[in-house]
């Protein structure tokens, strides 16, 4: 699948934003984080900025962005519609909770209700994003039981690395955020490796013979293409990344997305470093993770093969 930058930015940025929103709210509700005014301002500011940036960039992907509101109508069947609705709705409880926290320094009842709703909505939104891809039977690499959990896990991992960084910047106790980051990054890495193993080991079950129905005659191969230059279908669905590049990029994704952030977070936690070094460590962890997530997401698209390529020369998908 063609890796569109707007969609890569959307899924990574809004994933981190919703992760930060969910974790920040949760830890505050549980009393782990103190509802300090400027901390709240920064947390919600960053989360809203990332989410809004993501949502805006996803509308750039649309042919008719001015009609985007119509996407709220088909929640009964469409995961994209569900995602749009919950994503937009999340602003309401999150805004209320932020209001209580930042203006009144108060997250006890009734403000806490908004906090819990924010937490749930953020998680459901990310799940819907994952389901948009996981529900597509036409792309076997995505139609996989690990895709929606991976989206959620990676959103939590990137949210916790971000939270860890913000807490360090505000000189707030960040141990718990650090632990959550290490656990969720490790889990995310393991599930991602498992997922890669699973898709590499799965032989394509759809064949050019099934696509054309000509298998009764014999092996099917294209003789004359239907058009001289790539059409929309080829441009959008025919993208393929060379195997050796994919292997290298997977290594980089693991290195930047998981290994480095885990290592720096562990160092910051265990070394009892000075404030300056802790901040440097947590910022490094976040920067590295952001690079890694973009590579991971690029690969998610670039490695996904669509069954329509069977009409254009692919033997199996």
């Amino acid at each position: 699948m063609h890796p569109a930058y707007s969609v890569i930015l959307f899924t990574t940025a809004s994933g981190a934003g919703y992760g930060l929103l969910a974790l920040g709210s949760l830890l505050a509700l549980l009393g782990v984080i103190q509802p300090e005014r400027w901390l709240g301002f920064a947390l919600f500011g960053i989360a809203f900025a990332l989410i809004t940036l993501g949502l805006l960039s996803s509308t750039f992907h649309l042919g008719r962005p001015e009609r985007a509101w119509r996407a709220f109508s088909q929640w009964r069947t469409s995961w994209l519609s569900r995602e749009g609705i919950i994503a937009a709705f999340t602003y309401a409880p999150a805004g209320l909770f932020a209001f209580g926290w930042v203006i009144f320094g108060n997250i006890s009842p009734p403000w806490n209700l908004a906090g819990w709703i924010t937490c749930i909505c953020a998680i459901v939104t990310v799940w819907c994003t994952g389901m948009i891809y996981a529900s597509l039977k036409t792309i076997p690499n995505w139609h996989h039981p690990l895709i929606a959990p991976l989206y959620l896990l990676l959103a939590i991992a990137s949210g916790s690395v971000l939270l860890n960084m913000v807490l360090h910047l505000f000189r707030q106790p960040a141990e718990i955020a650090g632990y959550i980051a290490i656990v969720s990054l490790t889990a995310g890495c393991l599930v991602k490796l498992l997922y890669w193993r699973s898709i590499d080991g799965a032989p394509g079950t759809h064949t050019a013979e099934q696509a054309t129905g000509l298998g009764t005659i014999g092996k099917v191969r294209p003789l004359e293409p239907p058009h001289a230059q790539p059409n929309y279908v080829m441009r959008e669905m025919g993208f393929a990344v060379a195997r050796k590049h994919a292997v290298r990029l997977r290594l980089l994704a693991v290195l930047f997305g998981f290994t480095l952030p885990i290592a720096t977070t562990v160092l910051v936690l265990t070394l009892n470093a000075s404030v300056g070094l802790s901040i440097l460590g947590s910022v490094t962890a976040f920067t590295s993770m952001a690079i890694g997530m973009v590579i991971e997401r690029w690969l998610f698209f670039a490695e996904a093969r669509h069954v329509v390529t069977l009409y254009y020369g692919a033997q199996t998908v």
């Binding site: 649309l62 042919g63 008719r64 009609r67 119509r70 597509l136 039977k137 279908v233 959008e236 329509v308």
Partner: peptide, 26 residues
């Protein structure tokens, strides 16, 4: 008149039957 050009339907079609019009955005 109501298509927003999100292209998801073309991803969901196994048969490559949908072609996006880059000029019209639908």
């Amino acid at each position: 008149d109501t298509c927003i050009g999100c292209k998801l339907c073309s991803w969901a079609c196994p048969y490559g039957a949908r072609e996006y019009d880059y000029a019209e955005g639908v």
